[in-house]
Structure formats: structure tokens, C-alpha cells
Design a protein around this nucleic acid. Sequence first.
RNA 1: UGGGGCGUAGCCAAGCGGUAAGGCAGCGGACUUUGGAUCCGCCAUGCGUAGGUUCGAAUCCUACCGCCCCAGCCA
Length: 564
Amino acid sequence: METTTPPAPERSDFIREIVTTDLREGTHESIVTRFPPEPNGYLHIGHAKSICLNFGIAEEFGGRCHLRFDDTNPVKEEQEFIDSIEADVRWLGFDWGEHLYFASDYFEQLYAWAVHLIEAGKAYVDDLSADEIREYRGTLTEPGRESPWRDRSVAENLDLFARMRAGEFPNGARVLRAKIDMASPNINFRDPVMYRILHAVHPRTGDAWCIYPSYDFAHGQSDAIEHITHSICTLEFQDHRPLYDWFIENLPVPSRPRQYEFARLNLTHTVLSKRILLRLVSEGHVRGWDDPRMPTLSALRRRGFPAEGIRDFAAMIGVARADSVVEVEMLEHAVRDVLNREAQRRFAILKPLKVVIENYPEGEVEYVEVQNNPEDPSAGTRPVAFSRELWIERDDFMEDPPKKFFRLAPGREVRLRSAYFVTCTEVVKDDAGEIVELRCTYDPDTRGGSAPDGRRPKATLHWLSVAHAVPVEVRLYDHLFASEYPGADGRDLFDDLNPDSEIVLRDSFVEPSLAEFASGETVQFERLGYFCPDVDSSPGAPVFNRTLTLKDTWAKLQKQGRHD
RNA sequence: UGGGGCGUAGCCAAGCGGUAAGGCAGCGGACUUUGGAUCCGCCAUGCGUAGGUUCGAAUCCUACCGCCCCAGCCA
């Protein structure tokens, strides 16, 4: 039988290079990676980088990727998080097949290996308190001191460890430690804790255990049990690698995994610390883990970001070992790129201004055909009602326009997309001087949006027939944090929260055809941005989230003051 | 000041001794029934700094500078 070599992936980074080499040199016949979240919170865009890396490599090299929950700390972990993590990974587009695992599945094996180390004289039960252990550990520049309990007999250690498991001691009374080197310059080698007593109910094992392995004692061995070949984690675990290796080397594990580290994702205008995300939720700065302003995958999904855009983003930013902060604009670009290609177009008026077409017959309604997606003719067209009274966008009219404002103004002719050219003849104001209505005339010869004489207005506006428009609530989202680097320069991170990260509009209208999109699909509101129906919608009261704005040259000019 | 890492454009990132990819952002232009999209052009005589090796250095060597991580019974 012929063995086929998987085609070399065009995207390359140092990890894929290592994998390529390992495969070529026969270090491994096939590769196995894993994504190992702790179920103590929701997955966010930073996890997406890791998910795309681990599952992506498995896919590209014909290997497999496991989903393994690192559930060794029951005081922080919950079933709710396990469920959301599974849903989010699936939504992102990855499949772990049969390979769903939990570190807690290995508790019995891990316990046996702890006993093995005790018997080999390489682990001991320590009676020191947490505070004492810290004191004995030394500092970055001074070596630590050995615990007075370090030289207990194997028999005593075995007995004590068994009684720890049996529940004879309260939380914190004793720990099991590896006996390595209290003077090591690598602090992780100064007799790291392997087991601690935690009388807590575990989401999976319930009250079967009251001692739990530490990350260091669980992770590498879990990898070994699953025959993980490349254990990919973030940079802060570099110092743990020697310890990871030490356990592997000193235990009769079934395989020899290797750990590789890459730089975690940082994004401008965004915070990806689980601790802070938890505070944003618990202190009510946002409405929940899936609040559309959050960087969690569930929030991005609710916001209307397509999974493909997130995957493209991950591919775009690459994988390296240098600390970095990616501009959030790159994520937004990846998302717009997908949406521009795939999203159906619809008309919506966010801030309505009434237009009356004076020379259009009262009571008459006609339907014009509008393209659903100019980028994709196969998306077809839809009929949109046109009549004498229309809504246009308030921002599309200026009574006294600056030079570079191309839209509607007194006496000026513009195109109503796919309908007619109209000319503003009169501006109607209320007693306060507020513009309440525009009177216009239309040119019947321009039906469909082009003139027989070939004249071309400088602007094309979207519009809606007043009698046919459906009222909706629209939520405009912007960066949760106003500053590029939240909390930088000693500022309190929460002072950097953007007060305008959510603006709710209650007088908006959409086309009736938008009813079909209750499913959650993201659509483009022409000239405005991408929007999707929110779960807060109820029958007769639709709510739309703004996923992203369209790029807006006019807005940029305004911001720069270059419009004149 | 112990140990472990990392420095290539505003941002991300290729580059693996043969003369600085690509993307994002930005700027200019073309086109346009979305001020969107698309297309074209511009954007590092320079790779943290200083020396050295070499015909040739972002790539090798030396020294220095800067930044990040580690002193949880978190992961």
C-alpha cells in the first residue's frame, strides 16, 4: 500500500516547521494535538487562536486533535463552562470526533503515579502551611530551604498520602510535593506541589475525591496518556517545561509528548484576561458573557461575526514567540471580508427623515427589484415597495453641505438606489427650527436608477417606503474599551470603558423582507454596516445588533476635519 | 540584581549566509447604482545598538540596551 504524504501547508510558522520535520524524520508517524481549556469561564478570541492552531495543524497534517478539559480545580470549574466551551469549539468549525477527554478521567492513574514517585523517594507529604511553603521557597535571587518534612520515610509518606485521599485532613493541612531541588534557579523545581486537599464537589467526579492534582502534575501526564505528540501552550508555561519533562521522565508513562510555546493573542481596545472578563460580567459592566461587546466567542457569535472570519483572522496573524498586540482592525477586516462576500443586502433606516415626493401619485405603490448581493448575482433580487412618502437617513441630508458632502441637499439631485433620481425642492422645519421633512420631486424616466440622458448623481441613497417600513430596535456596538491599550500607563482599566460602546436606537426601520432573517444570519444594511437579529427579539419587536460598520470614507473625512 | 524568553515598517509577520515576502492600517489614483467592494501605485538603502567574522550578514560571533514571564496548595 502506498502512503500518501500530506501536501505541505502553504502557511508556515515555527510549530508547523517542527511538525513537518518530525513527520519527515519519522519522529512521529502521525501527530496528535490537543486543545486543553480549563472550564472556569467562556472561551474568547484568544482561545480561538489556540483552537485554530491545534485543530488546524491536526487537519493539515492528517493527524487528530483532542478536546481535553483541564478540570483539576473544582473550586473554579462548572458544567456551564464545559457546555459553552464545547458549543464554541464546534461553532468555530472544529470537530474532535470521539476524542473528548477530561483530566479528571485520569485522577486514578495520576494518583497511582504519585504513589510511584513516593515509592521512588521522589515525592513527600509536607505539613507546612501555604504561608510557610512560600517562605521556604526563597525568592527569585535567593535559594529556598528544605521543608523539615522532606525526609519522611516512604512508608510514612504512603500512609499520609492515603489518608489525605481518605479525607482525614482539612483543606490546606498537607500537600504532596515532588522532591527536586530547593536551590534551583527555576522556581518550578523548588519541590512543586503535586496534590492539595480540596474538599469540594467536582463537576464531573462529584465528591469522589478530596485531593486534586496540580496543573504541573496533571497536564504532561494527561498528554502522555492520550499520546499527544505536540503539546502546544502559551509562553508563560516556558518555565514549566523542565518540570513537564521531569514528570514524564520519572514516570512510566505510555508516550513522550513535547511541549512547545507560542505567544498568546493580545488585541487593541480589548481585554482578554479571564479574571477581568469575569469582573466585567459580575460587576455588571456588560449584560453577560455573551454581551455583544465581549471578546468571548459566544458574544462574537451573537454579534454576528461569522466563524470563518475568525478562522481567517487566526491565519492572518500567524504564530510566533514574540509578545505582540494585534490591532483589532485586522479582526474587523477578516470579518468584513467574509461578510462582504456572503451577506445579503437590505435597506434599513437607522435615523429616519421623511421625504415626500410631490410629483408622485398619492396612494400609489410600485415595487422595484433590488439586488440581494452585488458581489454574488446568484443571490438574486427582491421587490421593494416604493411610494410617495419615504424614509431616508437623516445623515444623508445637509441643508448647508460642506464641499465634500455628496449626498442630498437643497436643490440637489441624488439617486435612490434601484428606484429613481430625486431632487430636493424644499426643507420643512418645525417651530424649533428642526428639520422634520423634505419635499422632493422625482424623475419618472430614471426608474431603476439610471437616466436615459446618462447623467449620474454623485450620491446613491438607501430608502424605505413609510407605509411599508417595519419598526425595529437597533443596537450599535463599538469597542468596549475606548483606549487602544486598556489600563495602560497606570490607568484603571475600568476608567477606559467606552461609554458609547452600545447605543440603542428605537426609531429605526427595516424592509419587511428582513423577517426571513430571524434565523440569525448576518446581513448588510446597505451603506451602513452588517447587522444581525439579536436573541432579545420577540414577535413584533425585532432587535438588530450592528456587527460592524462598513468602512466609511466620509466619516473619516469628518473626523479629520478634511471635508471642506 | 537568579532563571527563562523576545526585539524586522504604525501593527501582525516571512526570512534559516547571496543582497528585506505578505497582510492590516495609512496615503494617492482608477472604477463604481453602497463615500462599500474591486483594481493600480506609494509606504524598511533598513532588520534593538556597537563591534567582529566573511567576497557577501536580518541571518554566524561578542558585548551592550530594551521589553515580557516566573516567588498560587490557579491554569
